[in-house]
Design a protein around this nucleic acid. Sequence first.
DNA 1: ATGTGTTCCTGTCCGC
DNA 2: TGCGGACAGGAACACA
Length: 283
Amino acid sequence: MPELPEVETVRRGLAPVMEGHVIASAQVNRPDLRWPFPERMAERLAGKKVQALRRRSKYILADLSSGETLIIHLGMSGRMLISGAQLGQFHHDHPAPAKHDHVVLDMENGARVTFNDARRFGAMDLTPTEGVEDHWLIRDIGPEPLGNAFNEAYLVQRFKGRNTPVKSALLDQRLVAGLGNIYVCEVLYRAGISPSRKAGRIAAARVAGLVPIIRAVLEEAIEAGGSSLRDYRQADGELGYFQHGFRVYDREGQPCLTEGCASTIGRIVQSGRSSFFCPTCQR
DNA sequence: ATGTGTTCCTGTCCGC
DNA sequence: TGCGGACAGGAACACA
């Protein structure tokens, strides 16, 4: 599920209990998720301090004092739960293990971080921190949409000559990092561009206009995640799944929210994914 | 090189 | 209440 804003929200939620703290022990309850876990993962995590908790695209990167980095991907259904830490205090009691709790990290500070992933499209790997950007899962990913390398000239260049629908182009992680089905729908709605339009046939000015829209949509979602984070810390400690007011995603058959537009939101399937759009506002 | 369809897995929801 | 099918926030992989 989680797209860039949700992963960033998870990272920010984990940081207070993990960054600068030592993993006392790790429990690994199955041999694999999408791929096998790295050899001896539990042993390689135990006793290591998390020096930094970073994010690259939809990956969370935990740099360890051993010189290795734990790479975490949440896939479609991956969740992170914090227990034993509330309101800055550690109370040391944890909920009963749940179905699909695959990896459990017990921190020396008493907090417990549980990775739960029903569909098991998630992944974890351990790799040397030096060169983690060249790891096979990460090396081909495009620029961070909130960074300087992602800009108008870049996107215009990358769209040039592409015969694929703009929806597919923006989902392509090699082109830009971190966008998923929800936020691509939201971006194209805000930009007034049909998801079916071929990327290479959009006027350069409109392509350039996508850049600030992508940034705004993601930043607003991160902000919404940030405010939800405070609630989660008070509630059950589950991170990353927050209610965010989507303006077009999952609104098939409901009225378009654009002022003065009388259309209803439609849905088409593009390469197996639902695209929600307004047939009037998006051309 | 690009573009598209299939696949991995479990859970939920909706119509009969 | 059961059953079948569609669908779900990802992305690697196989193939045209």
